[in-house]
Design a protein around this nucleic acid. Structure first.
Lengths: 256, 256
DNA sequence: CGGGTTATTGAGGGCTATCAATCAAGGTGG
DNA sequence: CCACCTTGATTGATAGCCCTCAATAACCCG
């Protein structure tokens, strides 16, 4: 979603050419030719294809943040933990989404594979220029373009997180579940009323919504009984009345 | 906190000179002299001192975002609303904090004065360069510096919001209240065990914590009974056992 | 000092968590 | 191919935490 429009699919195998193409991707076509050339000259691949299996950790909070990722296929959850194991999922990443982009010295969140997942990993070009406090000669055209992109991603992220705060702080269980169903439907279904697959488990949904799996399950069966959705299988969904779900998600669940 | 170190106090009156100084502030001393000069030549003040009284709205969600602000004195809350009036406070702004910095076309949040407040308002230098899709000649040294700053602010914001998500999604009422008391103590008290003033009302605290004012009040009296804090007056606080509050905030409230 | 706002305290109820059992699905080995 | 086990989802009963409603008390400001 953040990078819609200029992110081609990476169906082909990883390799040097792929790395260069990935580089061009980040900087977009407008990049100065010199930058792309430099990447080739360095001959260090800046993008690598990686695979993670279900529930594997991609990176953990506190690790040094020197790379960021894009989802090629599968799904990833971004989460934070308290000592005793309580987990809060902050976001879900689906194909073409970037994550781990925060050029903090360390990651402030944990990324885990929801399903088997294929990722592209990039070196973090912003790191050097952000950390160097000497001057701006390190800020090449490359990092400038990258920053524009990064900024947009961060802005969308902040906006999404504010909606998430509202959900967790003020919405009822029904409203929360309606919200995530709308989100998933918008993100994962191609057409309205279509059957689509939800890679998330009930636990993933619950930990995103600040609820328990039982409450999520109950809410979904309620929607099923009201004929707002159909659940052919736990990981398959049809939204039959998206308007009603929208209304609930927008806050009509309290009055009713 | 985000801009600690290079933000002097603005105790003096507003005026043209002040505007130029504010400009230099954003770009930091390292700014190219030409940029500062240009601002002076334009003779349009890019920083204005403003005053808002208690509960006044500074800007609303949906308004065009062409300016951003810094708190000189007083406190501001950043919040989001649902139709029916439910409010979620996303953050509090205290002296030297910047807000409204998201160069979205529109503000995605509402800013309201908690107390009588003095602000500096700046034109948004990033707007033009972010929106112009033609090339990079508009990206002056000025906006480059500004972007570095903006990025840091956004990163801190994202990090704070993730902690906030964890709070709203997974923490108990006691843990939440302990968390905000620690935050306020760190931000507003000069020394440990000191008496300090809390500009927030119980409603502000409750809407930040996803609780009701009654629950906040009860929680604070519980802490008072356990001798973790003293409450000389509703808006005055002494933290007598910050370690205990830290422990609760970190998640020890569930086991106990 | 007095009215209005804000905070505290109390009693009761609702929503969601917790605990527990059943059910469905997927993988494994015989 | 089917019993078996494991994992995940659903459903039910109960309890607990926090919300709601209500009243009192404290505070603020004229």
């Amino acid at each position: 979603m953040p990078s819609e429009g200029y992110v081609p699919s990476f169906k082909d195998a990883a390799g040097h050419d792929n790395a260069v193409r990935a580089h061009a991707l980040i900087t977009r076509p407008r990049v100065h030719p010199r930058a792309a050339q430099r990447a080739r000259i360095n001959s260090a691949p800046i993008a690598t294809q990686m695979r993670f299996s279900r529930n594997q950790t991609i990176f953990s909070e506190g690790e040094r943040s020197t790379q960021f990722y894009m989802v090629v296929s599968g799904a990833v959850r971004i989460c934070n933990y308290i000592r005793d194991g309580r987990r809060q999922v902050a976001d879900f990443m689906f194909p073409n989404d970037y994550f781990g982009i925060l050029p903090y010295p360390d990651y402030c969140e944990t990324a885990e594979a929801i399903s088997d997942v294929v990722l592209m990993r990039y070196a973090h070009p912003a790191m050097a220029s952000l950390e160097d406090q000497q001057g701006s000669n390190a800020l090449s055209q490359y990092s400038l373009e990258f920053r524009r992109h990064l900024l947009q991603l961060l802005l969308r992220r902040v906006r999404a997180m504010e909606r998430h705060l509202l959900l967790l702080g003020k919405k009822t269980a029904q409203e929360r579940i309606a919200t995530i169903l709308v989100m998933l439907s918008e993100r994962l279904a191609n057409t309205r009323g279509e059957l689509f697959e939800i890679p998330l488990s009930r636990r993933d949904m619950a930990d995103y919504l600040g609820l328990t799996i039982e409450t999520v399950s109950r809410g979904m069966t309620q929607f099923k009984r009201k004929h707002l959705i159909e659940i052919p299988a736990p990981h398959h969904l049809v939204v039959t009345n998206i308007r009603a779900l929208y209304a609930l998600a927008a806050g009509m669940g309290k009055a009713a």
